[in-house]
Every structure is written in C-alpha cells, then in structure tokens.
Design a binder for these strands. Structure first.
Length: 886
RNA sequence: GGAGUCAUAGCUCAGCUGGGACGAGCGUUCGCUUGACGUGCGAAAGGCCAUGGGUUCGAGCCCCAUUGACUCCACCA
C-alpha cells in the first residue's frame, strides 16, 4: 500500500513523529571514526533558567543547518549540546521561589540551598532542551553536558589551579563593581552603561587656615562621607597655590589634603574634584597613586555604614537627600545643575552598580590575551562577517583584569583553602587534608564561587573530556565553527579563545559565525519588560518548525539584525506547502511508473535537459554558498528554483507528456521530475528538515528507488560538469520568452484563459523553427493555444491578429473580433520605443572606444550579442507596424 | 570621546570580489474553479539606489565629505 500525502501540509502531523524516528535511529550520534573527517560545533549552552526565545531559535537553526549540511556531505558531524548553570540568574530564581515560601536563602544554609538549586535544575533544566528538539536540532543528545557537571567541575578546578600556579590568578583588594541587590561582585562585561539624567551639585569645601573655599562639583554628594582628598590639575593656575594645603570636609569635618593629579580635567566642572577612593574607580586609582586612605562608607546593600556617622543606616539615595539638605543649611551648597551622565547598572537586575573595594579573585589578562589577539590578526581564527574583528579587538585592546569571584552559592566554588592558624592560602584541585605549612587540619574553603563565564570559557574542550586526554578531544577538537550573536563576543568568544590557547595549546574553533538579533516588527529588542517577545514555540505550533527556521535565515544579511513579521512566517509556510503539493503532484503521476536509477540521456527532451542543468547549477551554487556561510543567499536560491523554475515552468511544461500515454518521452519526464525533486529536497533539507524528510521517504516508497531510510543521512547532491546543456537552455529560454509575450498580450486584451486561440510562429530561422516544432506540445499548453503553426512567412495571417516579437521571430495570434488595429499599433509603438532605448544604451557602450579597449572581452561580446538581438527584434516590429499602417 | 551598522518599490529587506535594479516577500490593481497547490495560477503598477564630490570605459556597490536613524565601547568628577 503506497502512502498518500494530505492535500495541505500539516506540520503537526509529522514533526514529532519524524524527530522521534531520528532519535530512535541515532542519526544525531557522532562517535570517533578516524576513517572519516569530523565536523564539530559546540552549542552555546543555554541557561537552565531560560525558555527558548527567538535568539536561540536563530542561533540553533544556523547551527543545525551547518551540521545537517556537513553530515550529508559525509562528514562525521558532531553537534555537542549542553546547558549552562547561569550562576546569578539561577540563584535569583531560586531565591524568588524561596521567598514565596517565606524562606530566606540564609535559613537554608549553603548546603540546603544547593540542594534546592539542584532540585530546581532537575525539574526545569531540561525544559530548554526539549524546546530545542521541537526546532529540529540534530544535537548528539547522548553527549549532553552541563557546565556544573563533574567533568566540567574538574576542568574548572584544574584551570584555576594552573592559572594560579602560573601567577595569572591572584587575590586582591581592588575596586570592583558591586550589585547591591544581588549582593555580589560582577565583571566589567556585566555592567551596562545607561545615560541617566542626574544633577551636578556644587559644594564649597572651606580651605583650612585661611579665608575662602574651593568649589567642587559632584554627581554623587553622598560619597563625600568617604572623601580623603581634593584634587586639582597640577597645571591649573587657579588652584596651584592650594596644592599641599588642606580643606575641611563639610559635615564630616575632616581635614583632607589638596593634591595635584593630571587626571583632573581643567575644562570640566570647576576643575576641582573630590576624591573618594572607596567608591569610584577613578578616585581609587588616584588614591592608590597618592597613598590616600580608603574609607568605605557603605554596607553591601548600599546603605551607609558606621563610617557615615549620623547617616548610617540610610540608603544611598536617602543619604544623598539628607546631605544636600544639610549642605544647604550650612550655606555650602552653591548651586544645582541638571546633568546627564552615564550610570553603570547590573545587566541582570538593572540596579545601579556601587563601586566598592573588596577582596576578590582576578585573572591577570595582559599576557593571556596575547595569543587570542594574534589568532584573529593572523587569520588562524576567522570571524564572519569580518567587521566584527573590530569589536573583538576593541575589547582585547582595552582588557582589564577579570574579576572572577562571585558572592553566590550556585556555581563552581573557588578551590582555595585558608589555614586560619598560619594564614596560608592553599589552592588545589582536591581539598587538602591539612595545611602543608603548619599541619592544621581545620582548613576553610573560600566561600565564593566563580563567574559563570569562567566555566563557559572552557566549554569547547571540557565537553570533549578535557583535562583527560580523550580520543574525543583528539578527534573532534578544535571545533570547526562557533555560532553566536554579536552581543556575546566579549563575554564568551574572547574568553574561549584565550582559554583554548592557554589550556589546550590550540584554538577552540576555526571560525566564528556571528549573527544579529531578532527584533520585533518595530525594530525593538524583544524583552520581557516590553512584553514584545514572540515565543518561537507559538510560531512552531501555528506554522511548523520548518516555516520558523526558514523565516529566520532568509531576508537579512549576515550579522545584521532582523525584524520578525508574522507575514514572513506565513510566506515560509506557504513555501513548505508549495513543496508539499508539487511533490504530491509528482507522486500522483509516479504511481504507475516503473523507474530506474539512471536514465538513458537520449530519451531526455530539451525541457528535461534544461531543468536538469538548472538543478545542477543550483547544486554548485548552494554548496558554495553554504561553504562560505552565505546561508540566506543559498536559501533564496533554493526557493526561487523550486517555486519558479521547477513548479511554474518545468512541471507545467511536462504536463502534456504526463497526460499522454502514447508519448515515448513520458518516462523521461517522470524520471526527471523525480530526480530534480530529490535534489531539491536534499538541498532544502538543512533548512526544512521535517517536510523534506516526509516527502523524501514517501517518494522513495513510491518509486522503489531507495537510497537511504532518511534524507538526513542521504548524500549531498554533487555538481556534474557534464550536465551543462547550453543549447537546450537557449531553446527553453526562447520558448519562455514567447510564452510570456503571449500571456502579456492576452492579458492586455483581457482575453480569458478559457478562450484558446491559434498561435502562429513566423521565422526564417531554421533553428528557431526547430525549437518551436519540437516543443510544440507544451508551448501550446503554456501559451493557451488551440493549435500551433510554425511557418517561415506571414502567409495566411491577416491584420486581425496581435503579435509579439521574440528573438528570431514573430508570434501571431489571430483574434479576429477582438483586434483593434489602432490599439495594436499603439502597442507596437511602445515596444518600438522600448527597443530604441535598449539600442541606445548598447550602442552608447559599443561606440565608446574606451569601453572596447578597456572592458573585458567577454563583456564586450555580451553587449554585441545584445545589439544583434535587439536589432533583429526591432526589424520585426518595424515590419509589422508597416504592414498594419498600410 | 572612540568604533560600527543602516539609509534601494507603499512596508520589511536582498543585492557576492564595481558591468544593464529578471530584485524578493508582503501590500496594491486586473484576470483566472487551467485535471498538485486560492497557503494557488497568470498579468501589471510602483525605485532621482539619502545628499554633494571623486576614482573608473563603467558605481547601489570603491574613496572623501555631509545629513539622518540605530547599536556597541569608554573612568570625564
């Protein structure tokens, strides 16, 4: 019993079933096989807290396309999947959950909390994975990893210890970005700078021991509680005399020095800057240069601490108000100006960052970053599109030490142990049983965990077994391509690159494919707060995964952002439906046919050879495009080929042969249909895995020509240099031209398709006559002709006919009653005008001696051919006009 | 203050290393129960390729400047 396809394509009927089939047959599985070439992609691990959003959908569609393409090409394609523990995001989620139960994090204690966290991970961590499956992602799920699993933890510890031993990891008290809500330090990359409207408060600081004061301008008056100096530029004549003297810090009534530092910009503000080393990164630097005391005036929740005297306990903004109020009362507030400035916020919770001095762990970057810079400079790692090199270098060139410790519980705990009796710090992969200096057995592990990105940086090799010397690592590493959005270059890409070189001695990947963001239809970022996000799962539910995938990779240039439109998804769905129906038609006709794998080429008609060479050319182009990551361009070409060339032209051309059992070329037509369809399906498969699989399998059953149980393991079509049928291509193009001409004329005259008419091709060119004679059958069908006559003169054709000119001939349609001679003349005049334009252009070029001498020969020849063609057509138009005007 | 992206049909965007804009989808107009598909078929309307220079036989594409929109980076109190 042969399978039937439903009338319209319904993705829901097949997607789940096919995905299950792929899983059951282990088609996604990749294992070491030295006889084959590997092709490896590691997934950017989605957060376990995450839900699939459009960004994931795009990112993973791109990866799946590349993987499926390479797999079909015969590579041993591994797509390594996994998830990220996402320290802050997850910890915040769990704290929220606990809050609902009225529990504080501290109530549970570290162990209790972690237990809850793991439970949460077990429950929700797999959600995004199942969503990725709905997209059709062909990851090797047997290899699924987690950034906090045992192997990754081992890798993290080893890296930490190694870097520590080499002096690249150190602990230090430096000013760091502190999030008062999340209660943790964060790295520079996690700080977002937002322009905010603020104020500029001008405050008088009286000079000690003499009359007068200096006026300073500040955006954060509350930090004056921690001021330990006032700075001026050493070149500033206005203030030179004050350098070395002291001023009295108002309210606090502390005497602080006036120092000179070139950091101060004379042009900006008043030229005098208050220095608060403990709460401003710049002031911190100045403070260290001048050995100033660092007075921390804040608690971890950004309330004022005991160093703030009577303001202690107030929130930083309350304190600001109170201090301004008091300054006013003291008569020390000169003025308040509006001021727009950049404020750093935490990218996760949008809280304004508070710079604080805290002991933290850092990775020293200056040496480590060097190979990462060199790799991209030399082209050993290629970033696509290459304009992102600049973003990459912008970050590497300005890199600062990476603050890696986080005051969180969910994450890799720092493998550093303190001996409280002798003060020794022991950094080791395994917890030491005793202090190697004093023998103390009561060691205390560092409370902090590591930045999430510390473990993600190792992802390309930790997932393959590193630090063990596994065969996987040897075979699949370095990976081939990394696919990710431009927003994550500095968070992740750079860190993977330097980590790869530092720990494996190799680059983590050869190429980085960067894509843009998916925005809403108004061009805004999709975000939770705006509520403008579109759920990919909803799209899949309504239109199918294939439609979503196709939509995401077409209609935009690499690296550029794209807007999401439902209309575009609909168009993609329509395309899937088109493929479905074309296949349905073909299979309908194949039912009774006996096909063989290859065909005797002598049986092929010009139309067959035309579409075969078109398909052949498509194979070459699509393959080339995919090799160079021009994924959207390739998709567009496949779309155009299937819809226009194959469906609208070839299938229509072939219909008369299919309906005529006497036609000895019918088998050739069926074979060609089947062959071109199969090639098209294969090319389309990476983009639309589900429809193509369903049709491919059904088609195989129908024809009995079985290649493989699944299209995804079938072989990628290969370009055949022998299948360039130039002559047939020319013939068919000529017929297409004629058909278009006829349709155009008919449409202009409002002739309904039901009214057939005789079509007479007049030409004195033997080749032209031959072309129309051999293709008469389908030319008649496409041109809505009742009968086609091919003759070499106009005998028998009266004035009551309309005509259209092609190269080498004129086509007449005697419509008798419908023909209005004046209108016909008008039409021909227009055609004449058009040709005149063309001739003018071509003649212009060809009469330019510089063009002839400097342009490439092929171009000149091309233009000459056009001249010939248009001249010929012009002559015919003129002839016709003449006879009508008589 | 640096850097980048974008400006092409009513809308959203393609246009590869310079060689006539066959531009695509959607929308619009007209005509179609043409034995796969109305999620379709056929025909059409619609573009000074932001502006001003330059290079070139030839520029939407390369160079310079200008205008406008957006994004990223940056410690100006």
């Amino acid at each position: 019993m042969k399978k039937e396809l439903a009338k319209t394509y319904n993705p829901k009927d097949i997607e789940e079933k096919l995905y299950q089939k792929w899983l059951d047959n282990k088609y996604f599985r990749a294992t070491v096989d030295w006889s084959r070439k590997p092709f490896t992609i590691v997934i950017p691990p989605p957060n376990i807290t995450g839900q699939l959003h459009m960004g994931h959908a795009l990112d993973n569609t791109l990866q799946d396309i590349l993987i499926r393409f390479k797999r079909m090409q015969g590579y041993n394609a591994l797509w390594q999947p996994g998830t990220d523990h996402a320290s802050i995001a997850t910890e915040v989620k769990i704290i929220e959950q606990l809050k609902k139960e009225g529990i504080e994090k501290e109530d549970l204690g570290r162990e209790g909390f972690l237990e809850r966290a793991w439970k949460w991970k077990e429950e929700y961590g797999g959600r995004i994975i199942s969503q990725l499956k709905k997209l059709g992602s062909s990851c090797d799920w047997d290899r699924e990893r987690f950034t906090m699993d045992e192997g990754c933890n081992k890798a993290v510890n080893k890296v930490f210890v190694d870097l520590y031993k080499k002096g690249y990891i150190y602990k230090g008290s430096k000013i760091i970005n502190w999030c008062p809500v999340c209660h943790t330090s964060i790295s520079d990359a996690e700080v977002e700078h937002e322009e905010k409207e603020g104020h500029f408060w001008h405050i008088k600081y009286p000079v000690v021991g003499e009359e007068g004061y200096v006026e300073i301008a500040t955006t954060r008056p509350e930090t004056m509680l921690g001021d330990t100096a006032v700075a001026v530029n050493p070149e500033d004549d206005r203030y030179k005399h004050l350098i070395g003297k002291k001023v009295l810090l108002p309210i606090v009534n502390r005497e602080i020095p006036v120092i000179a530092d070139s950091y101060v910009d004379m042009e900006f503000g008043t030229g005098v800057v208050k220095i608060t080393p403990a709460h401003d990164p710049n002031d911190f630097e100045v403070g260290r240069r001048h050995n100033l005391p660092e007075i921390n005036i804040m608690n971890d929740d950004a309330t004022i601490n005991e160093n703030g005297g009577k303001f202690a306990g107030m929130d930083r903004y309350e304190a600001r108000k109170a201090i301004v109020e008091e300054l006013k009362e003291l008569g020390l507030l000169v003025k308040v100006e509006k001021h727009i400035h950049n404020v750093g916020t935490h990218d996760r919770c949008k809280t304004t960052i508070e710079p604080l001095i805290k002991p933290q762990w850092f990775v020293k970057m200056d040496e480590l970053i060097k190979p990462a810079v060199e790799a991209v400079k030399s082209g050993e790692i290629e970033i696509i599109p290459d304009r992102f090199n600049k973003i990459y270098f912008n970050w590497t060139d300005n890199i600062r030490d990476w603050c890696i410790s986080r005051q969180l519980w969910w994450g890799h705990r720092i493998p550093a142990y303190y001996c409280d009796s002798c003060g020794e710090i022991i950094v080791a992969e395994e917890e030491p049983s005793r202090c190697h200096v004093c023998g103390n057995t009561n060691l205390r592990q560092d409370e902090d965990t590591l930045d999430t990105w510390f473990s993600s940086a190792l992802w390309p090799f930790s997932t393959l077994g590193w630090p063990e010397k596994t065969e996987d690592l040897e075979y699949f590493y370095p990976t081939d391509v990394l696919v990710t959005g431009y927003d994550i270059i500095f968070f992740w890409v750079i860190r993977m690159v330097f980590s790869g070189y530092a720990h494996t001695g190799k680059k983590p990947f050869n190429k980085v494919l960067i894509h843009g963001l998916v925005r809403d239809s108004l061009g805004r970022k999709m975000s939770k707060s705006l509520g403008n996000g579109i759920d990919p799962l909803e799209v899949i539910d309504k239109y199918g995964a294939d439609a979503l995938r196709f939509t995401l990779i077409t209609g935009n240039a690499p690296g550029n952002d794209m807007r999401f439109y439902w209309e575009r998804v609909e168009a993609s769905r329509n395309f899937a439906n088109k493929v479905w129906n074309a296949s349905r038609f073909i299979m309908m006709n194949l039912e009774k046919a006996e096909l063989t794998k290859t065909i005797d080429e002598n049986l092929l008609t010009p139309a067959d050879r035309w579409i075969l060479s078109k398909a052949n050319k498509l194979v070459k182009e699509v393959t080339d495009n995919l090799e160079t990551f021009e994924i959207g361009i390739a998709a567009q070409k496949i779309y155009d080929f299937i819809w226009e060339e194959f469906c609208d032209w070839y299938i229509e051309m072939v219909k008369p042969r299919l309906y005529n059992d006497q036609d000895e070329t019918k088998t050739a037509a069926l074979w060609t249909l089947q062959h071109v369809l199969t090639v098209s399906l294969k090319l389309l498969h990476p983009y639309m895995p589900f429809v193509t699989e369903e049709i491919f399998c059904t088609l195989q059953e129908m024809t009995g020509l079985k290649e493989k149980d699944s299209i995804m393991i079938s072989s990628w079509p290969e370009y055949n240099p022998d299948w360039e049928f130039e002559k047939d291509a020319e013939s068919i193009e000529l017929i297409k031209e004629a058909v278009k001409g006829i349709r155009n004329v008919r449409s202009q005259m409002n002739v309904p398709p039901s009214r057939k008419a005789k079509v007479i091709v007049v030409s004195d060119n033997e080749r032209v006559k031959e072309i129309f004679t051999e293709s008469k059958a389908f030319f008649a069908a496409l041109g809505m002709a009742s009968e086609v006559l091919v003759q070499d003169d106009k005998s028998g054709i009266g004035e009551d006919a309309v005509s259209t000119v092609i190269r080498g001939g004129t086509i007449y349609i005697p419509f008798e009653d419908l023909v209005d001679i004046d209108k016909e003349i008008e039409r021909l005049e227009k055609e004449k005008e058009r040709l005149e334009q063309e001739l003018k252009r071509v003649n212009g070029m060809l009469s330019n001696p510089n063009f002839i001498s400097k342009a490439p020969e092929s171009k000149v020849a091309e233009e000459r051919a056009k001249l010939e063609k248009y001249t010929d057509m012009m002559k015919q138009v003129m002839d016709r006009l003449e006879s009508l005007k008589k």
